[in-house]
Design a binder for these strands. Structure first.
Lengths: 358, 358
DNA sequence: CAAGAACGAAAAATCGATTTATCGATTAGA
DNA sequence: TCTAATCGATAAATCGATTTTTCGTTCTTG
């Protein structure tokens, strides 16, 4: 049975050739589907392949072409549902086309982002799907430009003069959030976000503000952002509340911000939606099982991934022309964390859940 | 400035050689750090490398060795924090050693798992870190064995007679959960899990049961498992509660089970910990910001990743000997979702949060 | 001073495929 | 019948490195 020897060397195309009694070139042609091979020989090749269990070595196969069948993917992190499923999708799409996806995490560092990119360039990847840490104008995009790499930018980008871009339509989604909140009677709303992701944060903020003011010109919109990490944001938020500010709703422009908001609410003993309403950009599985369920903007991961790969392969196959900037529509999920202001006593202290306040 | 031509072909080692006035072999040796090269020539090589911006092509470099500097990683999914950070860790560790990590998601399918493994074998990866969908005795492990691949199994494994294994010490952690729950006076506990992950689920279950019975021989432990996906588990759990079963605590052996339990509690209007206590295996960021915060077992991701890579590289470098089975200790985070039974009214209906019951 | 050891570097083989050039045999056309 | 075109397949070049072999110098040493 399978209790043979553990073969050290795998059969090469030459082994197949000699077993089939033909040359290696003929084997290569047969496997590539060239039709100018005598059927009899083709059959012998197939038999030999079968008998030896031969499989093409993709590395050796890629040696001789300028562009290799490898696609690189660089994400700011792997830990979130959004980027996790993004990588899953991209991997599947690459695989469908016979490519191998090599994914790497920039860990929210632009320096690392560029290093990874350089390494992928060394591998002579056919293309790169880059979700930049900051925006489309970072050092990574410059590197790609300077080295003539082909790539697509996704997520924290709006448009670029050198690369195709694909992202969620943040502005439209934020406008819908504005309709939802202002429509529910909220007239003092706090928006929180990280400013470093300039392009998209600005789009989300402006989309929200424009729509909110259109619906109610006297609405008050406060904004709290922090430059790099999420902890300063937490501190600013804590200060803000400590100063006695009492917005009736909070819109977080990013997932980590939603978590920060929730934990600050906890800290003060506020409940959603009675004490304050909450909407977050970016959905997560747990948001529908907590009490209350958290309203969120769902990004179209599959569409973004699919569109990014389409655009990328078009370029890989040599398409020229000005870069396109795609915006994929989001879905806004209304959940229990959003209510009307004043529908419950606005005060500290839960009634049956003890407030920690530690 | 950088507005040069977009160079199509990158400089090869021969370009460096001719610019430096030496042979390609000498360039290779200099870059490999061989000391038997005249300092003057070495300097000329370095200068040429600098001037041309030369970097070794890892693909070509790997061609000539039997084992390539590529490590494969196969995870059941990328969407969860656990596997997401596992990939991040593994990638960093591989990179430290000059290896490239190629990660793929088996999407909880054993068939896909084996396909990916075959593809990685085609790439002649130096080693594989496999987190099997089911357990250590699946088709993927057989494939690795039959083809003489070197690898390490992690997460849903206990021990194997062919491969090193590394996983969280589920049994010990579960015992601690048992101490926590029984110590709090719970005498009717429901455990939920997916049976397909045989090895670990059994370990977690037995660790829990043994300890719980040791502390209180009359404790009642119900078990609900489902074979493949999580939806049947949800259905069984719903039936269970519908039959009038009223455990005072639930211990979920996996993250998705924790979500299912929470959503079923919601459905019935039960609050933690007053109506029922909850502990989940696997921690997540959101669990500390919800109200109540969810008690959870934290798996030592970094330790598992680091130990797995150590073992793997030991084998890659030719170490022989019987496989080792490592168990890394977990941390159990006590949070508000656990209380004493009977400390609140056990009934349906929240008081200020409206129960959805849809 | 001649033979052998030591040294440094170039030439060549190698990895496993693909692609181009070449070649022999058969068939077609004049 | 002889040359030309066609077909099928092989030999050889190529991709970009590494590693082994070979070779020419210089340095020892008897």
């Amino acid at each position: 049975m399978a209790q043979q020897e553990v073969r050290q060397r795998r059969p090469s195309i030459h082994d197949v050739a000699s077993h089939a009694g033909v040359s290696a070139a003929t084997v290569s042609k047969v496997l590539a589907g060239v039709t100018t091979v005598k059927p009899e020989n083709a059959q012998r090749v197939f038999d030999a392949v079968e008998r030896l269990g031969y499989r093409v070595d993709p590395l050796a196969s890629d040696m001789r072409r300028a562009k290799r069948r490898i696609i690189g993917a660089i994400m700011p992190e792997f830990e979130s549902e959004f980027f996790g499923s993004m990588v899953t999708e991209l991997e599947g799409l690459a695989e469908q086309r016979g490519y191998t996806l090599v994914a790497a995490s920039s860990r929210e560092s632009e320096a690392r982002e560029k290093e990874i990119l350089a390494r992928m360039h060394d591998w002579r990847v056919a293309g790169v799907v880059l979700a930049p840490v900051r925006n489309e104008h970072g050092p990574a995009a410059d590197f790609m430009k300077a080295n003539g790499m082909t790539g697509v930018l996704i997520d924290r980008v709006l448009s670029d003069d050198a690369f195709d871009t694909v992202s969620a339509d943040s502005a439209a989604a934020s406008a819908e959030v504005a309709r939802m909140l202002v429509g529910n009677g909220h007239s003092h709303i706090l928006v929180i976000g990280l400013a470093e992701q300039a392009a998209t944060v600005r789009a989300r903020l402006e989309g929200f503000r424009t729509q909110a003011l259109a619906l109610n010109p006297s609405v008050r919109i406060d904004v709290i952002t922090s430059e790099v990490s999420v902890e300063p944001l937490r501190a600013s938020l804590r200060d803000y509340f400590a100063r006695g500010e009492r917005p009736t709703a909070v819109y977080s422009l990013l997932l980590k911000g939603t978590l920060v908001a929730l934990s600050e609410f906890r800290r003060r003993g506020w409940h959603c939606p009675n004490d304050i309403s909450l909407v977050g950009f970016d959905d997560a599985e747990w948001m529908q099982v907590t009490w209350p369920a958290i309203a969120a903007v769902v990004q179209p991961v599959r569409q973004i991934a699919s569109e990014a790969m389409n655009l990328l392969f078009r370029r890989v196959e040599g398409a020229v022309g000005p870069p396109t900037a795609r915006l994929e529509p989001c879905q806004v999920l209304m959940r229990e964390s959003v209510g009307s202001p004043g529908s419950g006593p606005h005060s500290g202290g839960g009634d049956r859940q003890q407030p920690p306040l530690s």
